[in-house]
Amino acid sequence: MDYASALALGVGFGLPLAVAFAATAQGRAAAAAAESMARQPEAAGDIRGTLIISLALIESLVIYVLLAFFLLNGKLPAIMDYVQQAGQ
């Protein structure tokens, strides 16, 4: 496997991997928050604030990966160059 195909795999699979784990984590956080809101409706305001902040903290990790994705995406060779190179 040469450099470009390894890079393409990294670019393609990095972000979905991060999204999958972060979605699991966010789902757990939201489920726990909904459960505790149902149990204690008078504390719903506090729980909602905590939920938003913790969701943002989880989300920010995905955003870091998104930035890495954009950085790596710029390093991929243009497709026509690659086709010409393969043809030679």
Partner: peptide, 9 residues
């Protein structure tokens, strides 16, 4: 980076 990444994305 959180604010920048969210808005840029």
């Amino acid at each position: 980076i959180r604010l920048f990444g969210n808005m840029f994305g």
